[in-house]
Amino acid sequence: MSCKRLFLEGHPVVSNVYFVVGAYAVSWIVLLAYLFRVQSLLRRSRAALAHARSAGGAT
């Protein structure tokens, strides 16, 4: 069954734009949030590596 036949009659078309804008906003927030998470994980693990190497050098 096509979704098109289920389209609500008389639904104001302009409100669709909010759904589109909302969808793009959600996707960008999700992608950027994950980007920052991964970058901070990377930074933390590199700091841990530098720490381990300096500990190795100290002994």
Binding site: Y34, L35, V38, Q39, L41, L42, R44, S45, R46, A48, L49, H51, A52, R53, A55, G56, A58, T59
Partner: peptide, 27 residues
């Protein structure tokens, strides 16, 4: 790109753990 970066972060962390262990044991 995400998979690569996530993998880099995880692998760097594992290398850090190995080296810290080696440093402590060696010391």
């Amino acid at each position: 790109f995400f998979i690569r970066r996530r993998y880099e972060a995880a692998l760097t962390e594992r290398v850090a753990e190995h080296e810290l262990q080696a440093a402590v044991l060696g010391g």
